[in-house]
Protein backbone atom coordinates (compact mmCIF):
# COMPACT_ATOMS: atom_id res chain seq x y z
CA UNK A 1 0.00 0.00 0.00
CA UNK A 2 1.59 3.23 -1.13
CA UNK A 3 0.00 6.19 0.65
CA UNK A 4 2.19 8.66 -1.23
CA UNK A 5 0.56 7.54 -4.50
CA UNK A 6 -2.84 8.27 -3.00
CA UNK A 7 -1.87 11.79 -1.93
CA UNK A 8 -0.16 12.61 -5.25
CA UNK A 9 -3.16 11.38 -7.30
CA UNK A 10 -5.86 12.83 -5.09
CA UNK A 11 -7.51 14.90 -7.79
CA UNK A 12 -7.54 11.98 -10.28
CA UNK A 13 -9.12 9.69 -7.66
CA UNK A 14 -11.73 12.32 -6.81
CA UNK A 15 -12.60 12.86 -10.46
CA UNK A 16 -12.93 9.10 -11.11
CA UNK A 17 -15.12 8.71 -8.03
CA UNK A 18 -17.48 11.46 -9.21
CA UNK A 19 -17.64 9.93 -12.65
CA UNK A 20 -18.51 6.53 -11.14
CA UNK A 21 -21.22 8.06 -8.99
CA UNK A 22 -22.63 9.74 -12.10
CA UNK A 23 -22.57 6.48 -14.09
CA UNK A 24 -24.18 4.64 -11.20
CA UNK A 25 -26.92 7.02 -10.11
CA UNK A 26 -28.17 8.36 -13.45
CA UNK A 27 -29.07 4.97 -14.99
CA UNK A 28 -30.88 3.91 -11.81
CA UNK A 29 -32.96 7.11 -11.82
CA UNK A 30 -33.78 6.83 -15.54
CA UNK A 31 -34.62 3.18 -14.84
CA UNK A 32 -36.99 4.30 -12.09
CA UNK A 33 -38.69 6.79 -14.41
CA UNK A 34 -39.22 4.14 -17.11
CA UNK A 35 -40.12 1.25 -14.82
CA UNK A 36 -42.97 3.04 -13.03
CA UNK A 37 -45.20 3.34 -16.11
CA UNK A 38 -44.15 -0.16 -17.23
CA UNK A 39 -44.90 -1.60 -13.80
CA UNK A 40 -48.22 0.23 -13.57
CA UNK A 41 -49.19 -1.16 -16.98
CA UNK A 42 -48.21 -4.67 -15.95
CA UNK A 43 -50.03 -4.44 -12.63
CA UNK A 44 -53.20 -3.13 -14.28
CA UNK A 45 -53.30 -5.37 -17.37
CA UNK A 46 -52.16 -8.68 -16.07
CA UNK A 47 -51.42 -10.14 -19.52
CA UNK A 48 -48.63 -7.57 -19.90
CA UNK A 49 -46.81 -8.76 -16.81
CA UNK A 50 -45.33 -12.15 -17.97
CA UNK A 51 -43.85 -10.85 -21.25
CA UNK A 52 -42.48 -7.75 -19.52
CA UNK A 53 -40.84 -9.84 -16.80
CA UNK A 54 -39.48 -12.32 -19.35
CA UNK A 55 -38.03 -9.47 -21.43
CA UNK A 56 -36.20 -7.83 -18.53
CA UNK A 57 -34.88 -11.21 -17.44
CA UNK A 58 -33.40 -11.85 -20.88
CA UNK A 59 -31.71 -8.45 -20.83
CA UNK A 60 -30.24 -9.25 -17.42
CA UNK A 61 -28.68 -12.40 -18.85
CA UNK A 62 -26.55 -10.34 -21.28
CA UNK A 63 -23.01 -9.80 -19.93
CA UNK A 64 -22.41 -6.10 -19.37
CA UNK A 65 -19.31 -6.00 -21.57
CA UNK A 66 -21.24 -7.63 -24.45
CA UNK A 67 -23.95 -5.00 -24.13
CA UNK A 68 -21.43 -2.13 -24.13
CA UNK A 69 -19.85 -3.55 -27.28
CA UNK A 70 -23.21 -4.13 -28.94
CA UNK A 71 -24.13 -0.48 -28.36
CA UNK A 72 -20.89 0.88 -29.88
CA UNK A 73 -22.22 1.10 -33.49
CA UNK A 74 -25.13 3.24 -32.29
CA UNK A 75 -23.61 5.22 -29.43
CA UNK A 76 -19.84 4.96 -29.83
CA UNK A 77 -17.34 4.85 -26.98
CA UNK A 78 -19.25 7.37 -24.90
CA UNK A 79 -20.74 7.92 -21.46
CA UNK A 80 -24.11 7.59 -23.17
CA UNK A 81 -23.26 4.06 -24.21
CA UNK A 82 -22.63 3.02 -20.60
CA UNK A 83 -25.63 4.95 -19.27
CA UNK A 84 -27.99 3.31 -21.76
CA UNK A 85 -26.64 -0.16 -21.00
CA UNK A 86 -26.82 0.33 -17.24
CA UNK A 87 -30.32 1.79 -17.56
CA UNK A 88 -31.40 -1.41 -19.30
CA UNK A 89 -29.89 -3.44 -16.46
CA UNK A 90 -31.59 -1.33 -13.82
CA UNK A 91 -34.91 -1.90 -15.58
CA UNK A 92 -34.37 -5.60 -14.94
CA UNK A 93 -34.36 -4.85 -11.23
CA UNK A 94 -36.87 -2.01 -11.14
CA UNK A 95 -39.74 -3.34 -13.26
CA UNK A 96 -40.34 -6.47 -11.12
CA UNK A 97 -40.07 -4.30 -8.01
CA UNK A 98 -42.64 -1.77 -9.18
CA UNK A 99 -45.01 -4.63 -10.03
CA UNK A 100 -44.40 -6.27 -6.65
CA UNK A 101 -44.83 -2.94 -4.89
CA UNK A 102 -48.18 -2.26 -6.52
CA UNK A 103 -49.32 -5.80 -5.80
CA UNK A 104 -48.32 -5.42 -2.16
CA UNK A 105 -51.14 -2.89 -1.66
CA UNK A 106 -53.70 -4.73 0.47
CA UNK A 107 -56.93 -5.62 -1.31
CA UNK A 108 -59.17 -4.04 1.38
CA UNK A 109 -57.28 -0.76 0.97
CA UNK A 110 -57.74 -0.85 -2.79
CA UNK A 111 -61.40 -1.73 -2.38
CA UNK A 112 -61.95 0.99 0.21
CA UNK A 113 -60.36 3.55 -2.12
CA UNK A 114 -62.67 2.54 -4.94
CA UNK A 115 -65.69 2.59 -2.66
CA UNK A 116 -64.77 6.04 -1.33
CA UNK A 117 -65.07 7.34 -4.87
CA UNK A 118 -61.50 7.51 -6.16
CA UNK A 119 -61.12 7.58 -9.93
CA UNK A 120 -58.53 5.15 -11.36
CA UNK A 121 -55.72 7.65 -11.94
CA UNK A 122 -56.27 9.40 -8.63
CA UNK A 123 -56.26 6.08 -6.82
CA UNK A 124 -52.97 5.14 -8.50
CA UNK A 125 -51.25 8.41 -7.65
CA UNK A 126 -52.90 9.01 -4.28
CA UNK A 127 -53.02 5.52 -2.82
CA UNK A 128 -51.28 2.76 -4.73
CA UNK A 129 -47.96 4.37 -5.68
CA UNK A 130 -47.41 5.87 -2.21
CA UNK A 131 -48.05 2.47 -0.66
CA UNK A 132 -45.71 0.81 -3.18
CA UNK A 133 -42.92 3.26 -2.28
CA UNK A 134 -41.06 1.08 0.23
CA UNK A 135 -40.79 -1.81 -2.23
CA UNK A 136 -39.87 0.51 -5.12
CA UNK A 137 -37.12 2.16 -3.09
CA UNK A 138 -35.92 -1.31 -2.11
CA UNK A 139 -35.48 -2.01 -5.83
CA UNK A 140 -33.78 1.32 -6.39
CA UNK A 141 -31.19 0.48 -3.73
CA UNK A 142 -30.20 -2.69 -5.59
CA UNK A 143 -30.24 -0.89 -8.94
CA UNK A 144 -27.94 1.92 -7.79
CA UNK A 145 -25.44 -0.40 -6.14
CA UNK A 146 -25.36 -2.69 -9.14
CA UNK A 147 -24.92 0.23 -11.56
CA UNK A 148 -22.03 1.61 -9.52
CA UNK A 149 -20.39 -1.77 -9.59
CA UNK A 150 -21.01 -2.41 -13.30
CA UNK A 151 -19.88 1.10 -14.29
CA UNK A 152 -16.27 0.04 -13.75
CA UNK A 153 -16.59 -2.47 -16.60
CA UNK A 154 -17.24 0.47 -18.93
CA UNK A 155 -13.53 1.23 -18.58
CA UNK A 156 -12.93 -1.64 -21.03
CA UNK A 157 -14.54 0.45 -23.81
CA UNK A 158 -12.71 3.53 -22.59
CA UNK A 159 -15.43 5.20 -20.53
CA UNK A 160 -13.56 6.31 -17.47
CA UNK A 161 -14.57 5.48 -13.92
CA UNK A 162 -12.95 3.92 -10.87
CA UNK A 163 -12.55 0.90 -13.16
CA UNK A 164 -9.51 2.77 -14.55
CA UNK A 165 -7.69 2.06 -11.30
CA UNK A 166 -8.20 -1.68 -11.70
CA UNK A 167 -6.87 -1.85 -15.24
CA UNK A 168 -3.99 0.56 -14.64
CA UNK A 169 -3.09 -1.21 -11.38
CA UNK A 170 -3.11 -4.57 -13.11
CA UNK A 171 -1.01 -3.36 -16.05
CA UNK A 172 1.56 -1.76 -13.76
CA UNK A 173 1.41 -4.55 -11.15
CA UNK A 174 0.60 -1.85 -8.61
CA UNK A 175 -1.90 -3.25 -6.04
CA UNK A 176 -2.41 0.07 -4.25
CA UNK A 177 -4.46 1.36 -7.18
CA UNK A 178 -6.63 -1.76 -7.18
CA UNK A 179 -7.27 -1.54 -3.45
CA UNK A 180 -8.12 2.14 -3.63
CA UNK A 181 -10.55 1.55 -6.50
CA UNK A 182 -12.21 -1.34 -4.70
CA UNK A 183 -12.60 0.50 -1.41
CA UNK A 184 -13.96 3.62 -3.10
CA UNK A 185 -16.56 1.65 -5.08
CA UNK A 186 -17.73 -0.04 -1.91
CA UNK A 187 -17.81 3.25 0.01
CA UNK A 188 -19.69 4.92 -2.83
CA UNK A 189 -22.24 2.11 -3.00
CA UNK A 190 -22.77 2.21 0.77
CA UNK A 191 -23.17 5.99 0.73
CA UNK A 192 -25.82 5.84 -2.01
CA UNK A 193 -27.58 3.05 -0.20
CA UNK A 194 -27.62 5.07 3.00
CA UNK A 195 -29.11 8.07 1.20
CA UNK A 196 -31.88 5.85 -0.19
CA UNK A 197 -32.63 4.33 3.21
CA UNK A 198 -32.91 7.87 4.55
CA UNK A 199 -35.20 8.80 1.67
CA UNK A 200 -37.43 5.82 2.38
CA UNK A 201 -37.74 6.74 6.05
CA UNK A 202 -38.55 10.33 5.18
CA UNK A 203 -41.11 9.34 2.56
CA UNK A 204 -42.84 6.61 4.57
CA UNK A 205 -43.27 7.79 8.15
CA UNK A 206 -46.40 5.66 8.20
CA UNK A 207 -44.63 2.31 7.92
CA UNK A 208 -44.61 0.45 11.23
CA UNK A 209 -41.05 -0.12 12.42
Amino acid sequence: MSWSWVSVNGSLIWQLTRQTAYLGVVPALIGLAISVPLGVTAARWRWFSPPALAAVNVIYAIPSLALFIALIPALGLSDTNVIVALTLFSLCIMVPNVIAGLRSVAEPVRQAATAMGYGQLRQLVGVELPLATPVIIGGLRVAVVSSISLASVGQLIGVSSLGYLFIDGLQRSFPTEIYVGLVLIIVLALACDLVLVGARRALTPWAAR
Binding site: P108, A112, P130, W206
Partner: peptide, 18 residues
Protein backbone atom coordinates in the same frame (compact mmCIF):
# COMPACT_ATOMS: atom_id res chain seq x y z
CA UNK B 1 -69.66 10.46 -7.74
CA UNK B 2 -72.23 7.92 -6.57
CA UNK B 3 -69.78 6.36 -4.12
CA UNK B 4 -68.82 9.67 -2.54
CA UNK B 5 -72.45 9.98 -1.49
CA UNK B 6 -72.48 6.53 0.13
CA UNK B 7 -70.45 5.78 3.25
CA UNK B 8 -68.66 2.43 3.20
CA UNK B 9 -67.21 0.49 6.12
CA UNK B 10 -65.51 -2.89 5.75
CA UNK B 11 -64.33 -5.57 8.12
CA UNK B 12 -60.61 -5.09 7.54
CA UNK B 13 -61.15 -1.31 7.91
CA UNK B 14 -59.30 -0.61 4.63
CA UNK B 15 -57.76 2.47 6.25
CA UNK B 16 -55.02 4.04 4.17
CA UNK B 17 -51.81 3.12 6.01
CA UNK B 18 -49.95 6.12 4.55
Amino acid sequence: QLRRGIGYVIQQTGLFPH
